[in-house]
Design a protein around this nucleic acid. Structure first.
Lengths: 408, 408
DNA sequence: ATTATTTTGTTCATTAAGTTGACAAAATAA
DNA sequence: TTATTTTGTCAACTTAATGAACAAAATAAT
């Protein structure tokens, strides 16, 4: 995650970033003005980028007085970027052009949750995607996984919700495909996706919160992910909400995750069900009670029902959004972000959870930092993770392309 | 706070930073090796820096084989940097050499806490310091103040513990001395001081926590302070500890500050006193009871007594360190810092509070991020603020010096 | 319709910054 | 005393960026 470009490539990088930002295209003159460079310099670097087939010219558009400029945009037929991310028990794969347009999507469902299946499906999916690349692939694959990841080694240190420890993702991928993977936490990947292509575009201080079975966040400043000393930065699931709260999987009491994750949502609903069963009144008709009895209940279903107007589901969602609101207001008070994006399995079905969290956070956050923060639902939904993972190849491995293309 | 140097000054900046880090001096060859530059380049830039009187040569030290290198260090007699910070009801002023050696110190006590007195004392103190500068002053003054500061405008937006709103610090200083001030929150200034000269030297992800009447933090990554959308990042005093906790000055319940600030410490001790008074037993002898009766009690005294072994004081300190430990463990879990430094009025008298916080945090934080964090007491103590403020001139306004000296 | 104006992208000479290679100076090791 | 190693500097060369000049392509003015 350290953008470690040689200093002489700095202008090239900046120019590329500017081109990246406007899908309709930017002219050389506009870039020169914005980056405070001479048109000559921009022109020279632009021809280099065009020789590398990273950038191409569009039809010149006539708008004002003077000779019309020729818009430049990222090539959409030469280079491609591959990202994978694991959500809701399956691997999502996305192949994009340089500007993030999705070219190909794929999903691999897992039959169980063993480590071997996890790795095998990943390899299977990558192999499948590699066949479809209609050009050159940037020689790096972004991979979002559950748990705490050491991105230097590409090893999942621990993934509590899966019950895993020390899962090496790096070696199998490298050995099978001779392409280095960049492995990171899936919610952090999703955060990067939102920052680049979603509702975080152009936001300088951003927090993405992924709410699924676990709860994690990504702190992103100026497009750069805060990693912390061992890549654990963002693990807000174990923020303490109430010292007297319920037992969390980590062994402590009152963690956010114990109140408000997908697992907690299911627990709350089941408690409600039991107490109704124990009561005297007849059980009112409800899809969710059937789901409990059929053992088909999952957190996403509860959220979907809530969005449909199912009162019981809404109540449960309101319950978990209290602690989420507390956590969000803590983040607002202490980190003063410009925008907070709520994503993950519990947010994707609709904006209800985000609305509830916003309402709670407004009650609890300080006025000054709250007035300057926007709280929004994830825009990319379940695609955020794989898209974010796919940003890593271009974002951090431009050096890999340059020698490859410069030499030829 | 945006180090916005022209790209061509990047090497100069890096070389200066390397020289800055070693007080004993670094040779040109060592710098070249470290920064991966040619010795020629370093030599050229070094002569420029020497012409600017920012750097000077020391006696060459003979250690290994080969021609001995000539150590370079920051000049200590040409340029000086002035910082001011407001703590414990008085302004602290520090004049330093470029490498942070303190040349002159001064303190201005305030007779009250009106805004006018606050500004007048600041101007008075600066005037006094300016007389003592034994060379050229970097034309920027770093100023640490209570409250939320907009560092773009130099205005204190609000300082709740002082009861102030919209205090313009920038204009009076600029008008009187024709030197632009850089204004920031005092605890953030102290954090920068620790990061540069104190126990945060060389630490890449650092959190400084200042505990006084209020509680604030500075999040510093690679020497750069996280500011947030409106410079509020670090206001951890209003982190929610317990939704059912005591009323905080901000109108909400259970904020960290309501439990654990200096004001809370005094409240806790007084409650203890009242309950003892109400009891049947005779009041045991204690300096603190006298202080309450004489109205000379302040938070620092309680801390000092605790360090002396006063049981009542220790109990009170233990009480506030529970919530501080919760807050610290939240920061560890979510931000995964390399080091946490505890400073402020309640920490300066001794390491007791830090030790108590460390113990609490160990109980509550997750093992993985806790194992990689060091929790240490502030090294610079009450000098941290003014020293940190004094780092700003050099750190962010090198551009100001360069035109001044290049021209001549 | 024609000319003037504006803006773009390119060509060419120039400048600035950094690199390589050679070399004298100053230390230790043989 | 000589060989080796390391440092700092000088000269020649390379590279990236700039500014000035200019043709091309649009609109505005006459």
């Amino acid at each position: 995650m350290r953008p470690n470009l040689a200093p002489e490539m700095k202008n090239m990088w900046n120019i590329l970033s500017m081109i990246e930002k406007t899908s309709t295209g930017t002219t050389r003159a506009a870039i020169a003005k914005q980056l405070d460079l001479s048109r000559t310099t921009v022109s020279n670097i632009a021809t280099q980028l065009m020789n590398m087939k990273l950038v191409e010219e569009l039809e010149s558009e006539v708008n004002g007085r003077g000779r019309p400029g020729i818009p430049l945009r990222l090539t959409d037929s030469e280079w491609f970027s591959l990202g994978a991310s694991f959500h809701g028990g399956c691997w999502h794969f996305i192949l994009t052009t340089l500007d993030g347009t999705i070219v190909q999507e794929h999903r691999e469902s897992l039959a169980g949750d063993s480590v071997d299946l996890f790795i095998d499906s990943l390899l299977e999916g990558i192999a499948c995607m590699l066949k479809t690349v209609p050009g050159k692939l940037i020689p790096l694959i972004g991979i979002g996984t559950p748990g705490l990841v050491n991105s230097d080694t590409g090893v999942i240190v621990r993934a509590d919700d899966m019950g895993w420890k020390k899962v090496d993702v790096y070696t199998p991928v490298l050995e099978r495909f001779s392409i280095a993977p960049f492995v990171l936490n899936r919610h952090r990947a999703a955060g990067l996706g939102e920052a680049r292509f979603g509702s975080g575009k152009g936001v300088s201080s951003l927090i993405y919160i992924g709410i699924g079975n676990g709860i994690s966040a990504a702190f992103i400043n100026d497009g750069i992910l805060l990693e912390g000393a061992n890549f654990c930065a963002g693990e807000i699931g174990h923020m303490l909400i109430d010292p007297n709260g319920p037992l969390c999987g980590c062994g402590r009491y009152g963690c956010l995750q114990a109140y408000s994750s997908g697992l907690a949502l299911i627990r709350i609903l089941k408690e409600r069900y039991s107490s109704l069963l124990a009561g005297e009144d007849p059980l009112p008709e409800n899809v969710l009670w059937n789901a409990i009895e059929n053992k088909t209940l999952n957190a996403e279903l509860i959220v979907k029902e809530a969005i449909q107007g199912n009162d019981v589901a809404i109540e449960c969602l309101e319950k978990i959004s209290i602690q989420l609101g507390i956590a969000v207001s803590n983040l607002i008070n202490t980190l003063n972000p410009q925008k907070i994006i709520i994503g993950g399995t519990l947010s994707n079905p609709g904006s209800l959870l985000t609305d509830l969290i916003r309402k709670e956070a407004e009650r609890r956050a300080m006025r000054s930092p709250f007035s300057s923060v926007q709280i929004e639902q994830s825009y990319l939904g379940y695609k955020a993770g794989a898209l974010g993972a796919a940003t890593l190849p271009l974002r951090h491995k431009l050096e890999l392309i340059l020698p490859l293309t410069n030499g030829s």
